[in-house]
Design a binder for these strands. Structure first.
Lengths: 230, 230
DNA sequence: CGACGAGTATGAACTCGGTCACACCTTGAG
DNA sequence: CTCAAGGTGTGACCGAGTTCATACTCGTCG
């Protein structure tokens, strides 16, 4: 995003889009923008921190690391999305780490500034509650999925939702413009790198999708969608 | 709970405990109390509904039913806990069904009344945000657990947390006073009834726990706790 | 440009836990 | 009191997916 006028940046973030215009001006002065390089850690799980992040460009992953060192990928966040609201709102330690998947830019807002804004702008509070509510719904669904479906179904489901959330249409094809390793995909569906690889190969062979420099391109979206349900 | 003075009821619910005393009086007039019999459905997944529920007595389970009809148990709620806040806050359909595990009483509060209260009492809004935040944290942890640990570990973990949340100490023993079938336990950890049965038997044989008329009593809490981590 | 590290590819062996099948208890409704 | 229904107990079998081992491919950095 070459745009560096804070006020214009703010208008692009859905959370702030519905904000009263007169509330946007002060906001613009409170955010700070920073560029992150690939694989940089934005927040560490377990840390206490009161910063809210707003993704401007690039993709980020939220991960938790289990006691045995295994990494679980909780969500992939792209431009316009907000994260870090949990710790800001309840003051508890960060529930996950966030790492850049590729270079990108983030705007950040500190807790005191956020609370000040919320006091004058109830819509912001409502927006944040909606973000939180959405997280609960997404997590509930993922939880249900992981304990009900088998690996191919789970993988199909993840690809479908990645495509819906971040996909770029190229004719009848849909490109998922996020550089996710097979390891990453595995840790999204609770499977090993190997299992992901094998399933991906099957789909590649049957022409459902193909890989391009670290990205997945879906050729036959309906087929994938069909594979995600029973 | 024989107590039927609404104002006293309200004081027992943690969400309202920190409420300004002058805000409790109007609240008392807005809640409605109802008794539910065993296995009664309080809310149906998918329905739209704007009622917030406050558990007074008895235990309740939140479940989602997958497309294949398999039931997942999301959480067990006991006296003092609040549920149904998600749909009330974001207006979306209910994310899960709630069913009584045994006869119990619930207080309920309708959306308009709640919003009215929130407008005058910011603490209530903060309390609800905390409830939501807690849900995100719990779900995140459960999600991590289910995809990292094996069945015995998951089961141990669930029993430990049930004991911590609802347990009654009887000397060195801890009783989980909730009537959960092995099927229920299974659907909490993403396992079958049979697997739960077999693990429970092992623990019974080794004296870690025993069963009493539908309830689980933990004899060796440290052992169970040890079994829940690797 | 060449080499190292990260990611990809693939199969063989094993194993946890699910499925199935069947018998045995409780418990509460009539 | 009796019966049906729902919950519990237990073993045999088998299959999806993990683990392990071993090559290969690519891109990026000295």
């Amino acid at each position: 995003m070459r745009e560096h006028d804070p006020e214009k940046l703010v208008a692009r973030i859905p959370l702030f889009a519905t904000l009263e215009p007169e509330a946007r001006k002060p906001l613009a002065n409170l955010i700070r923008v920073r560029r992150y390089s690939a694989r940089e850690v934005v927040v560490w799980e377990g840390e206490t921190g009161g910063t809210l992040f707003l993704s401007l460009t690039g993709y980020f992953k939220a991960i938790t690391t289990g006691s045995d060192g295994k990494e679980m990928l909780l969500s992939v966040m792209g431009p316009g999305e907000v994260f870090g609201e949990l710790s800001v709102l309840d003051g508890q330690p960060r529930s996950a780490s966030v790492v850049t998947l590729e270079p990108g830019e983030l705007a950040s807002l500190e807790r005191p500034a956020l609370f000040e804004l919320m006091a004058t702008s109830p819509r912001l509070a409502i927006g944040l509650i909606e973000v939180l509510a959405q997280r609960v719904r997404t997590l509930t669904k993922r939880y249900e999925t992981i304990s009900t479906l088998d690996v191919p179904q789970r993988l199909a489901q993840v690809l479908v939702s990645l495509a819906q959330k971040h996909g770029q249409h190229e004719g009848s094809r849909v490109r998922i413009p996020v550089r996710l390793s097979q390891q990453d995909l595995g840790s999204m569906v609770g499977a090993t790198r190997e299992s992901v690889n094998k399933q991906l190969r099957k789909w590649t062979e049957s022409g459902v999708l193909h890989r391009e420099t670290g990205c997945v391109v879906i050729s036959d979206f309906p087929a994938l969608r069909a594979a995600s349900a029973t």
